[in-house]
Computed example of a mutant assay.
Amino acid sequence: MTTTVDTAEIPYLDISDPSFAMASEQVRDAREQSWIAQTNYGFAVLRYDEVAALLKDQKLSQGSARWPDHHGVHSGAFHEWWSKNLLVLESDEHHRIRRLLNPAFSPSMARKLEPEFAEIAEELIAGFADQGECDFVRDFAEPFATRALCAMMGLDHKHWPFIASRANTV
Rank of each mutant, 00 (worst) to 15 (best):
R31V: 07
L54I: 09
V137H: 12
I97K: 14
T146K: 01
L86D: 10
A121H: 03
S24W: 10
L113I: 06
Y48P: 04
A52D: 12
A126K: 03
I36V: 15
A121T: 07
A65Y: 09
P68Y: 01
E133M: 10
K158V: 00
P143G: 11
I36P: 12
G63I: 06
A53N: 03
E116W: 00
A141R: 02
G127D: 08
G76Y: 04
F144Y: 11
A141W: 01
F117S: 09
H74D: 14
N85I: 00
R98Y: 12
A30I: 10
P161Y: 01
Q131W: 09
N40D: 15
A30F: 05
H79F: 15
N40F: 05
G72T: 07
H95F: 11
P107R: 04
M153T: 09
L89R: 02
A53Q: 09
G154K: 00
H95I: 10
H159Y: 06
H70D: 14
F140C: 10
A148M: 03
I120W: 00
A121M: 06
E114L: 05
E25F: 03
R31Q: 15
I36A: 15
C150L: 05
Y48D: 13
R96K: 15
R99P: 05
K158A: 00
G42Y: 14
N102Y: 11
P115M: 08
V51A: 15
I163F: 02
W81A: 06
C150W: 00
E32P: 00
A164M: 04
I163D: 02
V45A: 14
H71L: 14
P161M: 02
A145N: 15
G42V: 14
I97H: 13
R31N: 13
G63V: 07
A110M: 07
